[in-house]
Amino acid sequence: MFSPLTDDRTPSSVVTGLVDDVLALAETWPAWDGTPRPSGDRVYTPHKAIRRVADHLVDHLAELEATLAGVDPLPDHWHASAVTTAADLAEFTAEDLAEARSRLTRLAEIWRLRLDSLTDEELDKSTGGWSPRELAFHVAESVYYAEVVGNLAPRTPA
């Protein structure tokens, strides 16, 4: 298993930065025309991007808490991005953006509080899986889902 690359940023800022970046893109998604965005053998939509980011934050938060408690994490049963649901294809409205903002901001806050409560030694301790620091940097990679959908703000002529 590969280990996520880390750097000198605080792990909590990496996670909160992820959410800030996703929400900045999501602010433009009410302009989405309903066409899924392809990436390899998958497609992404605004709802699917939000779902995938939230699922990633929840899944790895459960892994983090189990690891810190000294127990094996529950296995992950997400279908990940292989599945596009009917809900993923729905229009993305201002109300959806507000819900996404609330959901992702609260998840980022849970991550921030937990990660900031750990010492550097605890952040780097691994019990066979990724360390808490590595988990934080890994979940930040889920910005990918939002980047596939992209910035949908109308472009103004130069």
Score class of each variant (00 low, 15 high):
R106N: 15
L97P: 09
T35G: 00
E141W: 04
N151M: 01
L115K: 06
A108V: 04
E63T: 13
V149G: 05
D20M: 05
A54V: 03
T35S: 08
S142N: 07
A158S: 13
R51Q: 09
G129C: 04
V15K: 08
P154Y: 08
V148L: 04
D33H: 03
F92V: 04
E27W: 00
I110A: 10
R114E: 12
L25T: 06
S131G: 05
V15T: 08
A86S: 12
S142K: 01
W29E: 07
Y44C: 00
D116C: 05
N151E: 07
D76Y: 14
R52H: 15
E95L: 07
E121H: 09
P73M: 02
H47C: 02
V14Y: 01
L5Y: 14
L23W: 10
V15G: 07
P38Q: 05
Y145L: 02
G34F: 02
T105A: 10
P75Q: 06
N151P: 05
E63Q: 10
G150T: 06
W29T: 07
R155D: 07
L18R: 05
R155S: 12
L152D: 01
G70S: 10
A31F: 12
S102R: 15
D88I: 02
D8A: 14
G128A: 10
S131P: 07
R112K: 15
V14N: 02
T85V: 06
P38L: 03
L89A: 09
A31R: 14
L68F: 10
P38T: 06
E65I: 01
R106L: 15
R103M: 11
S131K: 04
F2P: 14
A82N: 14
V58M: 09
W130T: 03
L5C: 09
S126D: 14
F92Q: 03
V43C: 00
A140S: 14
A31K: 13
D8K: 15
L61S: 12
V43A: 00
P132Q: 04
R9F: 05
G40E: 10
A26N: 07
T35I: 07
W32L: 02
F92S: 01
Y144N: 11
E134M: 05
R52M: 14
P30G: 12
L97Q: 09
V14I: 10
S3N: 13
L115C: 06
L113Y: 08
D55M: 09
T85Y: 12
S142R: 00
A66P: 00
E141C: 02
G70Q: 08
Y44P: 00
R106C: 11
S39A: 15
S131R: 05
R37F: 01
R133T: 08
T84V: 14
P154N: 02
T156E: 13
Y145N: 09
L18Q: 08
L25G: 05
H138L: 13
G17N: 05
W111S: 02
R9W: 03
L123K: 08
G150D: 06
T6L: 05
E141T: 11
V22N: 03
R42I: 04
L104W: 06
H79G: 15
S102M: 04
P154T: 09
D76W: 12
V143G: 07
E109F: 08
H138Q: 13
D20V: 09
T67N: 11
K125C: 11
G40C: 07
A24F: 01
T105E: 13
P46V: 04
T10V: 11
L23M: 10
T45H: 00
D21L: 10
D59G: 15
E141S: 11
V148E: 04
S12L: 02
V149M: 01
R9H: 12
H138S: 11
I110H: 11
R112A: 14
